[in-house]
């Protein structure tokens, strides 16, 4: 019984570790397979606006209180939620960002939008990824690997 419990807890713990990584997802028919962290940051800050489909990226965010948004704020945006909101609002106001990224309340809805649009890009916890979307390598690494940059931090 002790060994069984230990195995269950170990499996749950290791699974939880992998599931906490944040996956960058695009449509399955998007030609992109990999992005550098710098390119990814530029896309999510709407500085790099052209997708491989030669149209504008449709950038999707998650709610400020979600764990994946916390990871992305620290590892990708290197910003606070308030500062990011101001950044997008200023961009909309002066025309440098048009449109600002949309905040999507659920992973299911995000998968639905991304799977239907080759120029959409978003992120979600690895545990929320399904076959409807494609996970990109970031800086050559996939979620769950040691060098993957979008990991939760303490």
């Amino acid at each position: 019984m002790k060994q069984l419990l230990f195995t269950i807890l170990l499996l749950a713990a290791s699974s939880a570790l992998r599931a906490d990584d944040v996956a960058i997802v695009v449509a399955k028919d998007c030609p992109l397979e990999e992005l550098s962290l710098a390119d990814l940051r530029a896309i999510f800050r709407c500085e790099k606006v052209i997708s491989p489909a030669r149209s504008k990226w449709i950038v999707l965010l998650r709610p400020a209180a979600s764990p994946e948004q916390g990871t992305v704020l620290k590892s990708l945006f290197k910003s606070t939620a308030d500062d990011l909101a101001v950044y997008f609002r200023l961009g909309e106001f002066n025309g440098s960002i048009d449109p600002a990224p949309k905040t999507i309340p659920s992973a299911a809805l995000e998968r639905h939008i991304i799977s239907g649009n080759k120029s959409a890009i978003g992120y979600m916890l690895v545990s929320e990824v399904t076959d409807d979307v494609k996970v990109l390598r970031i800086g050559g690494a996939l979620p769950g690997t040691t060098n993957y940059p979008l990991k939760p931090r303490d």
């Binding site: 949309k102 999507i104 309340p105 659920s106 809805l109 639905h112 939008i113 239907g116 649009n117 959409a120």
Partner: peptide, 20 residues
């Protein structure tokens, strides 16, 4: 959520077709 789908895709709430 359906209303948000409508806002994001311009589609009627409850529609299930892809956004594009």
């Amino acid at each position: 959520l359906e209303q948000q789908v409508k806002e994001l895709t311009g589609a009627p709430a409850g529609a299930s077709a892809p956004a594009e």
